[in-house]
Structures are given as structure tokens and as C-alpha cells.
């Protein structure tokens, strides 16, 4: 799908003198901290959140990284 902001940035990179960029796409990264009883619950909650609110699957792909914070809660 066309990413006009990515294309504009790629054009600017060439003007800066950085050549050879074949592809440049712009997205967003969202960091959040979540308290959950276990990792599986956290994973399920975050998948629901990503698919229904944080991203729109019609126009966006998403990936999820889950790391555990100290104190046993997932972050």
C-alpha cells in the first residue's frame, strides 16, 4: 500500500546525499506496561488490543514483542 510520508522521506534522504535506499516505510511504535497474572494472559490481551485498537488490520500490519519486567509483571 502507498505510504506517501515514507516516499517523501526517501526523496529527502536522496537530497541529503544518502543514496541507494530502495524502500522506506513509516509506521509507529507503541510501548505499554501491563499487569497480568501470567505471560499467556498478557499475550492474549495484547493481541486483542493490537488487532482491535492499536492497529487497523485493513491498512496496517503489526508485530508484538512481549518482555517481562521485574516483580513478575509483564511489560
Amino acid at each position: 500500500m502507498l505510504d506517501p510520508a515514507g516516499e517523501a522521506t526517501r526523496a529527502a534522504a536522496a537530497r541529503l546525499g544518502v543514496d541507494g535506499i530502495q524502500k522506506l516505510r513509516i509506521g509507529k511504535a507503541i510501548e505499554l506496561e501491563l499487569v497480568a497474572p501470567d505471560r499467556a494472559t498478557a499475550q492474549a490481551q495484547l493481541e486483542r488490543l493490537s488487532d482491535r485498537l492499536l492497529a487497523n488490520p485493513v491498512i496496517e500490519n503489526w508485530t508484538l514483542e512481549l518482555a517481562e519486567a521485574t516483580g513478575g509483571s509483564a511489560a
Partner: peptide
């Protein structure tokens, strides 16, 4: 309604 509205092609 289906689909989505995104950033205009020429920004």
C-alpha cells in the same frame, strides 16, 4: 462500512 481512509497521496 468497509475499507479505511488514509493520508492523501500527495500529503
Amino acid at each position: 462500512l468497509p475499507g479505511a481512509l488514509t493520508r492523501n497521496a500527495r500529503l
